[in-house]
Protein backbone atom coordinates (compact mmCIF):
# COMPACT_ATOMS: atom_id res chain seq x y z
CA UNK A 1 0.00 0.00 0.00
CA UNK A 2 2.68 2.52 0.99
CA UNK A 3 5.48 3.47 -1.31
CA UNK A 4 8.71 1.54 -0.73
CA UNK A 5 10.62 4.66 0.26
CA UNK A 6 8.09 5.53 2.93
CA UNK A 7 9.13 4.82 6.49
CA UNK A 8 6.81 4.88 9.47
CA UNK A 9 8.63 7.86 10.96
CA UNK A 10 7.93 10.01 7.89
CA UNK A 11 5.03 12.45 8.01
CA UNK A 12 1.83 10.78 6.85
CA UNK A 13 0.79 13.89 4.94
CA UNK A 14 2.95 16.55 3.30
CA UNK A 15 1.49 19.69 1.75
CA UNK A 16 3.78 21.71 -0.48
CA UNK A 17 2.63 25.15 -1.58
CA UNK A 18 -0.98 24.11 -2.07
CA UNK A 19 -3.00 26.79 -3.85
CA UNK A 20 -6.69 26.67 -4.61
CA UNK A 21 -8.37 29.27 -6.77
CA UNK A 22 -12.13 29.46 -7.43
CA UNK A 23 -12.51 31.96 -10.24
CA UNK A 24 -11.51 35.22 -8.56
CA UNK A 25 -11.41 33.78 -5.04
CA UNK A 26 -8.15 32.33 -3.77
CA UNK A 27 -9.24 29.97 -1.04
CA UNK A 28 -5.79 28.55 -0.29
CA UNK A 29 -2.65 30.63 -0.76
CA UNK A 30 0.28 28.28 -0.64
CA UNK A 31 -0.11 25.90 2.27
CA UNK A 32 3.10 24.25 3.36
CA UNK A 33 2.62 21.81 6.19
CA UNK A 34 3.41 18.31 7.43
CA UNK A 35 1.36 16.03 9.62
CA UNK A 36 3.24 13.34 11.60
CA UNK A 37 1.79 9.89 12.02
CA UNK A 38 -0.49 8.93 14.86
CA UNK A 39 -1.47 12.37 16.15
CA UNK A 40 -4.66 14.39 16.35
CA UNK A 41 -3.96 17.42 14.16
CA UNK A 42 -6.55 20.16 14.46
CA UNK A 43 -7.15 22.90 11.92
CA UNK A 44 -8.95 25.99 13.16
CA UNK A 45 -9.73 29.38 11.70
CA UNK A 46 -12.63 31.68 11.00
CA UNK A 47 -15.41 30.81 8.57
CA UNK A 48 -14.21 31.03 5.00
CA UNK A 49 -10.55 30.55 6.03
CA UNK A 50 -10.29 27.59 3.65
CA UNK A 51 -10.46 24.65 6.06
CA UNK A 52 -13.05 22.66 4.13
CA UNK A 53 -11.33 23.50 0.86
CA UNK A 54 -8.08 22.12 2.28
CA UNK A 55 -9.78 18.85 3.33
CA UNK A 56 -11.35 18.64 -0.13
CA UNK A 57 -7.94 19.02 -1.77
CA UNK A 58 -6.36 16.41 0.51
CA UNK A 59 -9.14 13.87 -0.10
CA UNK A 60 -9.29 14.39 -3.87
CA UNK A 61 -12.75 15.99 -3.97
CA UNK A 62 -10.97 19.04 -5.42
CA UNK A 63 -7.66 19.21 -7.21
CA UNK A 64 -5.48 22.11 -6.09
CA UNK A 65 -4.64 24.64 -8.78
CA UNK A 66 -0.98 24.45 -7.71
CA UNK A 67 1.19 22.53 -5.29
CA UNK A 68 1.84 18.98 -4.21
CA UNK A 69 0.19 16.69 -1.70
CA UNK A 70 1.90 13.49 -0.59
CA UNK A 71 0.03 10.89 1.40
CA UNK A 72 1.98 7.90 2.75
CA UNK A 73 4.78 8.87 0.38
CA UNK A 74 2.61 9.02 -2.72
CA UNK A 75 1.60 12.04 -4.78
CA UNK A 76 -2.16 12.32 -4.60
CA UNK A 77 -3.05 15.85 -5.72
CA UNK A 78 -4.33 14.59 -9.07
CA UNK A 79 -5.90 11.35 -7.87
CA UNK A 80 -9.69 10.88 -7.73
CA UNK A 81 -11.30 10.41 -4.29
CA UNK A 82 -11.92 6.68 -4.67
CA UNK A 83 -8.22 5.99 -5.30
CA UNK A 84 -7.21 8.07 -2.33
CA UNK A 85 -9.72 6.15 -0.20
CA UNK A 86 -8.12 2.91 -1.36
CA UNK A 87 -4.70 4.24 -0.29
CA UNK A 88 -6.03 4.59 3.26
CA UNK A 89 -7.67 7.98 3.73
CA UNK A 90 -11.25 8.57 4.71
CA UNK A 91 -13.36 11.52 5.75
CA UNK A 92 -16.62 12.94 6.99
CA UNK A 93 -18.42 15.99 5.63
CA UNK A 94 -19.25 19.33 7.23
CA UNK A 95 -22.81 18.91 5.98
CA UNK A 96 -23.68 15.30 6.79
CA UNK A 97 -23.59 13.17 3.63
CA UNK A 98 -24.97 9.77 4.60
CA UNK A 99 -27.02 7.45 2.40
CA UNK A 100 -30.29 8.38 4.13
CA UNK A 101 -32.58 5.63 2.81
CA UNK A 102 -30.11 2.86 3.50
CA UNK A 103 -29.98 1.34 6.96
CA UNK A 104 -27.39 2.41 9.50
CA UNK A 105 -25.68 -0.95 9.06
CA UNK A 106 -25.68 -0.71 5.26
CA UNK A 107 -24.10 2.73 5.45
CA UNK A 108 -21.16 1.23 7.32
CA UNK A 109 -21.13 -1.76 4.95
CA UNK A 110 -20.53 0.69 2.08
CA UNK A 111 -17.44 1.73 4.02
CA UNK A 112 -16.12 -1.84 3.61
CA UNK A 113 -16.48 -1.56 -0.17
CA UNK A 114 -12.94 -0.43 -0.72
CA UNK A 115 -11.49 -3.40 1.22
CA UNK A 116 -13.55 -6.07 -0.55
CA UNK A 117 -13.72 -7.38 -4.10
CA UNK A 118 -16.82 -9.26 -5.28
CA UNK A 119 -18.06 -7.83 -8.54
CA UNK A 120 -21.17 -7.77 -10.68
CA UNK A 121 -21.07 -11.41 -11.80
CA UNK A 122 -20.25 -12.85 -8.42
CA UNK A 123 -23.09 -10.81 -6.93
CA UNK A 124 -25.67 -11.79 -9.53
CA UNK A 125 -24.77 -15.47 -9.26
CA UNK A 126 -24.26 -15.35 -5.48
CA UNK A 127 -21.08 -17.36 -5.69
CA UNK A 128 -19.76 -19.00 -2.58
CA UNK A 129 -16.85 -16.57 -2.23
CA UNK A 130 -19.25 -13.66 -2.63
CA UNK A 131 -21.47 -14.97 0.16
CA UNK A 132 -18.49 -15.52 2.42
CA UNK A 133 -17.28 -12.00 1.77
CA UNK A 134 -20.76 -10.60 2.33
CA UNK A 135 -20.89 -12.25 5.75
CA UNK A 136 -17.51 -10.76 6.63
CA UNK A 137 -18.66 -7.30 5.52
CA UNK A 138 -21.68 -7.61 7.82
CA UNK A 139 -19.51 -8.69 10.76
CA UNK A 140 -16.99 -5.91 10.27
CA UNK A 141 -19.71 -3.30 9.89
CA UNK A 142 -21.38 -4.46 13.11
CA UNK A 143 -18.06 -4.30 14.91
CA UNK A 144 -17.66 -0.66 13.86
CA UNK A 145 -21.19 0.13 15.02
CA UNK A 146 -20.25 -1.37 18.38
CA UNK A 147 -17.08 0.71 18.42
CA UNK A 148 -18.99 3.98 18.04
CA UNK A 149 -21.99 2.86 20.12
CA UNK A 150 -24.64 2.71 17.41
CA UNK A 151 -25.28 -1.05 17.40
CA UNK A 152 -28.85 -0.61 18.64
CA UNK A 153 -29.75 1.53 15.63
CA UNK A 154 -28.34 -0.90 13.04
CA UNK A 155 -31.59 -1.44 11.16
CA UNK A 156 -33.01 2.07 11.20
CA UNK A 157 -32.77 4.14 8.03
CA UNK A 158 -29.77 6.42 8.46
CA UNK A 159 -31.91 9.44 7.63
CA UNK A 160 -34.13 8.73 10.65
CA UNK A 161 -31.31 9.25 13.17
CA UNK A 162 -30.98 12.52 15.07
CA UNK A 163 -28.20 14.77 13.76
CA UNK A 164 -25.81 13.88 16.58
CA UNK A 165 -26.01 10.18 15.76
CA UNK A 166 -25.77 10.86 12.02
CA UNK A 167 -22.44 12.56 12.63
CA UNK A 168 -21.22 9.55 14.62
CA UNK A 169 -22.46 7.20 11.91
CA UNK A 170 -20.46 9.12 9.33
CA UNK A 171 -17.37 8.49 11.46
CA UNK A 172 -18.19 4.76 11.70
CA UNK A 173 -18.62 4.57 7.93
CA UNK A 174 -15.28 6.30 7.42
CA UNK A 175 -13.54 4.01 9.94
CA UNK A 176 -14.88 0.95 8.12
CA UNK A 177 -12.56 1.76 5.21
CA UNK A 178 -9.58 1.04 7.53
CA UNK A 179 -8.06 4.49 7.11
CA UNK A 180 -4.54 5.39 8.13
CA UNK A 181 -5.70 9.02 8.03
CA UNK A 182 -9.17 10.21 9.01
CA UNK A 183 -10.38 13.72 8.12
CA UNK A 184 -13.22 15.11 10.25
CA UNK A 185 -14.92 18.34 9.10
CA UNK A 186 -16.65 19.98 12.06
CA UNK A 187 -17.85 16.74 13.66
CA UNK A 188 -19.13 18.61 16.74
CA UNK A 189 -21.27 21.05 14.72
CA UNK A 190 -24.84 20.68 15.97
CA UNK A 191 -23.92 18.40 18.90
CA UNK A 192 -24.86 19.22 22.49
CA UNK A 193 -22.31 19.32 25.31
CA UNK A 194 -22.67 15.69 26.29
CA UNK A 195 -22.51 14.48 22.70
CA UNK A 196 -19.42 16.63 22.15
CA UNK A 197 -17.73 15.04 25.16
CA UNK A 198 -18.52 11.58 23.82
CA UNK A 199 -17.14 12.62 20.45
CA UNK A 200 -13.90 13.72 22.12
CA UNK A 201 -13.65 10.37 23.84
CA UNK A 202 -14.32 8.57 20.52
CA UNK A 203 -11.59 10.55 18.73
CA UNK A 204 -9.25 9.57 21.56
CA UNK A 205 -10.00 5.88 20.97
CA UNK A 206 -9.51 6.30 17.21
CA UNK A 207 -6.08 7.78 17.86
CA UNK A 208 -5.22 4.91 20.24
CA UNK A 209 -5.84 2.52 17.36
CA UNK A 210 -3.03 4.23 15.50
CA UNK A 211 -5.16 6.23 13.10
CA UNK A 212 -3.99 9.76 12.39
CA UNK A 213 -6.82 12.28 12.73
CA UNK A 214 -7.14 15.69 11.09
CA UNK A 215 -9.86 17.59 12.87
CA UNK A 216 -11.45 20.78 11.58
CA UNK A 217 -13.49 22.17 14.45
CA UNK A 218 -14.90 25.34 15.93
CA UNK A 219 -15.50 23.98 19.42
CA UNK A 220 -12.40 25.31 21.20
CA UNK A 221 -12.93 23.21 24.29
CA UNK A 222 -12.82 20.06 22.22
CA UNK A 223 -9.89 21.25 20.12
CA UNK A 224 -7.79 22.30 23.09
CA UNK A 225 -8.45 19.05 24.96
CA UNK A 226 -7.77 16.45 22.31
CA UNK A 227 -5.32 18.01 19.83
CA UNK A 228 -1.67 17.15 19.73
CA UNK A 229 -1.04 19.99 17.30
CA UNK A 230 -3.07 22.84 15.93
CA UNK A 231 -2.78 24.69 12.64
CA UNK A 232 -4.50 28.07 12.41
CA UNK A 233 -5.67 29.04 8.94
CA UNK A 234 -6.47 32.65 8.18
CA UNK A 235 -7.56 33.81 4.74
CA UNK A 236 -6.17 30.68 3.12
CA UNK A 237 -2.79 30.88 4.80
CA UNK A 238 -1.23 29.29 7.88
CA UNK A 239 -1.21 31.91 10.60
CA UNK A 240 0.33 29.80 13.33
CA UNK A 241 0.91 26.24 14.34
CA UNK A 242 1.93 24.44 17.48
CA UNK A 243 0.70 22.61 20.54
CA UNK A 244 -2.53 23.88 22.14
CA UNK A 245 -0.78 25.98 24.79
CA UNK A 246 1.31 27.79 22.19
CA UNK A 247 -1.75 28.54 20.09
CA UNK A 248 -3.71 29.86 23.08
CA UNK A 249 -0.97 32.35 23.83
CA UNK A 250 -0.04 33.35 20.30
CA UNK A 251 -0.72 37.10 19.99
CA UNK A 252 -1.37 36.90 16.25
CA UNK A 253 -3.98 34.23 16.77
CA UNK A 254 -5.67 36.23 19.51
CA UNK A 255 -5.58 39.29 17.28
CA UNK A 256 -7.13 37.35 14.36
CA UNK A 257 -9.79 35.89 16.57
CA UNK A 258 -10.64 39.34 17.93
CA UNK A 259 -10.83 40.86 14.46
CA UNK A 260 -14.21 41.62 12.98
CA UNK A 261 -14.03 38.69 10.54
CA UNK A 262 -14.74 36.39 13.43
CA UNK A 263 -18.50 36.08 13.71
CA UNK A 264 -20.09 36.43 17.16
CA UNK A 265 -20.82 32.78 17.83
CA UNK A 266 -17.32 31.75 16.91
CA UNK A 267 -16.04 34.71 18.85
CA UNK A 268 -17.55 33.31 21.98
CA UNK A 269 -14.66 31.02 22.95
CA UNK A 270 -12.13 33.81 23.16
CA UNK A 271 -14.53 36.15 24.86
CA UNK A 272 -15.04 33.40 27.40
CA UNK A 273 -11.32 33.17 27.80
CA UNK A 274 -11.21 29.66 26.45
CA UNK A 275 -8.63 30.48 23.88
Amino acid sequence: MTSPRFSSSDPILILQDVHMQFGGVTALKGIRYQVPRGIVQSIIGPNGAGKTTLLNCISGVLHPTEGRISFLGRRVEREPPHRIAALGMSRTFQHVALFPQMSVLENVMVGRHVRTRSGFWAAGLRTRSMRREEAAIGRDARAWLDFVGLADAAHLPAGALPLGKQKILEIARALATDPALLLLDEPAGGLNTRETEELGELIGRIKERGTTVILVEHDMNLVMTISDRILVLYYGQPLASGVPDEIKENPEVIQAYLGDEWTPDEGAPIMNGQL
Binding site: V61, P81, H82, F93, G111, R173
Partner: peptide, 8 residues
Amino acid sequence: KAAEAMGV
Protein backbone atom coordinates in the same frame (compact mmCIF):
# COMPACT_ATOMS: atom_id res chain seq x y z
CA LYS B 1 -19.87 12.54 -3.36
CA ALA B 2 -19.91 10.42 -0.20
CA ALA B 3 -19.87 7.19 -2.21
CA GLU B 4 -16.72 8.36 -4.00
CA ALA B 5 -15.07 9.33 -0.74
CA MET B 6 -15.79 5.81 0.57
CA GLY B 7 -13.84 4.42 -2.37
CA VAL B 8 -16.67 3.60 -4.77
